[in-house]
């Protein structure tokens, strides 16, 4: 039967045999199969598209909900686009939503988060890059031991160190303040950042360092004049890693700050999960989106660098 068909329509046979052969020889690393709508392609793209829809759904639902008025939410379903677009929920979430007695919206949490994130990122990256540089180029006795302790320490659950850090912060008078939280982020960002910078500096050609030494440059000169300008990409990766990590932090924020200094994530949770009052789902979703906006913008701008950053920082969790 098949043979008959083949003889009857030689062009057809060639057309269908070609991709079959190409497929057999190609595998994932060969040339792209000729036929666009082969069963294999439909399966691959179909599955990926389906999964993509699943991944995009929550974002879509959040956006749609935040643009609806409350009456429309009560009537309609969460997937339907807004009949009447309103930005009222966004304005309310930003400037008048209540947490406890404070009714000045998420803006306070936003600025707290900015005031926490900026110095934390700057401080943690400066310290960790210098540490990494010392470990890679100026090895001294015992340095590796401390470094090993540091990296192993990254695996200890934070809960184990929460209270001792409270005591340390209380002793130096920073408990409950923004600067206390900055210090905490600097401390707990250190393992992964030091590892990142140490490995990067160790991969730079040693001759550069030696030549600078011969020319009489010292520890700080080499760092500032040679290492720093040469490692901008890794600094960008570190900045992406730290900004998203610190912005998204909840645990340290809730433990080490007071209601006045709560970062955005903590305030968001308090707004949405408040027990009293009528639930305004549109305001809640607008607030949620506002909090997620900063890391999302960074993510969509930075693209592949973000992937590098998280691949390095994923151990941090």
């Amino acid at each position: 039967m098949a043979e008959q068909l083949l003889r009857a329509a030689p062009e057809l046979a060639v057309a269908s045999a070609m991709p079959a052969r190409a497929r057999a020889l190609s595998g994932p690393h060969g040339p792209r199969p000729r036929r666009r709508f082969s069963r294999r392609n439909v399966f691959i793209y179909g599955t990926l598209a389906l999964v993509a829809v699943y991944y995009l759904l929550p974002l879509y639902v959040m956006v749609v909900t935040s643009l609806k008025g409350m009456p429309e939410i009560r009537l309609g379903n969460i997937f339907s686009p807004p009949v009447e677009i309103t930005f009222e929920p966004w304005i309310k979430a930003w400037s008048t939503a209540c947490t406890g007695l404070n009714c000045d919206g998420l803006s306070r949490g936003f600025w707290n988060s900015v005031m926490i994130t900026v110095p934390s990122v700057f401080l943690s990256i400066s310290i960790a890059s210098i540490n990494g540089y010392a470990l890679a180029n100026w090895r001294f006795k015992g340095a590796e031991v401390f470094f090993t302790v540091l990296v192993v320490g990254a695996f200890i659950p934070y809960q184990v160190m929460l209270y001792p850090v409270v005591i340390v912060l209380r002793e130096i008078g920073l408990y409950g303040s923004l600067w206390g939280l900055v210090l905490v982020h600097t401390i707990f960002g250190m393992p992964i950042l030091t590892l990142l910078f140490r490995n990067y500096f160790a991969s730079l050609p040693e001759e550069l360092f030696k030549a600078a030494r011969v020319d009489g440059a010292g520890f700080w000169t080499i760092y500032l004049r040679i290492m720093l300008p040469m490692s901008l990409p890794i600094f960008v990766v570190a900045i992406i890693l730290q900004v998203t990590g610190i912005w998204n932090d909840f645990l340290f924020g809730v433990v080490y700050t007071k209601p006045d200094t709560y970062p955005m994530t903590v305030q968001l949770n308090n707004i949405v999960n408040a027990v009293q009052g009528v639930k305004e789902y549109n305001v809640n979703m607008a607030a949620t989106l506002l909090t997620g906006l900063v890391p999302l913008v960074i993510y969509f701008i930075s693209g592949k660098l973000f992937v590098r950053g998280i691949a390095a920082g994923a151990v941090k969790g």
Partner: peptide, 14 residues
């Protein structure tokens, strides 16, 4: 890229 808080609240709504 999102905070667990954002993820949690989004799914709480869905």
């Amino acid at each position: 890229a999102l905070s667990f808080i954002v993820t949690g609240l989004a799914w709480q709504w869905i």
